[in-house]
Amino acid sequence: MNDIKLENSLSPSFPKIRRISETIGNIIGLLVIGILFWLQSFFDWPIWTFWILVGLTVLTILGIIWSIFEPTYLYRSWSYQYDDEYLQLSYGILQKEWVTVPMTKIQSVTTSQGPILKRYRARSIKVETVGSSHAIPALEEEVAFALREKIAEFAKLKEVDE
């Protein structure tokens, strides 16, 4: 499975979307750390809190560097496929994941759209099963709706012995 490629890939604007949302997250993270630094010096917190904050800053900066490259790689690693019986997802850069869920075991499917996704006319899809939930982060709107309809249609089938 070193590189399983399933039939479909994410919306091509996924890297952009991801980069924007990560940037927003990083800015908020840096702001919080800045405030904590200020609190630390203002209230004279013990010195070890300072070192923890320095550690956090280093981690955040590493995260920012990573987030420049990550969206492209993540986009390349993501693929999914569905037919009458199974929904399959494959993703992950360092840790490859491959998940398969029988259509009949899907309990609900939700599409959602935040402001960034809306700007790129994309939607994310969340599929819930008895055990867990899986999300496809960004699909073009028409594709997302088609997938939702398909899943809804097959989720209606009920297996004997439930």
Binding site: M1, N2, G92, L94, Q95, K96, E97, W98, V99, T100, V101, P102, K105, T129, V130, G131, S132
Partner: peptide, 8 residues
């Protein structure tokens, strides 16, 4: 009801 595998 669900199967997955992963590889680091």
């Amino acid at each position: 009801v669900e199967m997955s595998y992963s590889q680091s």
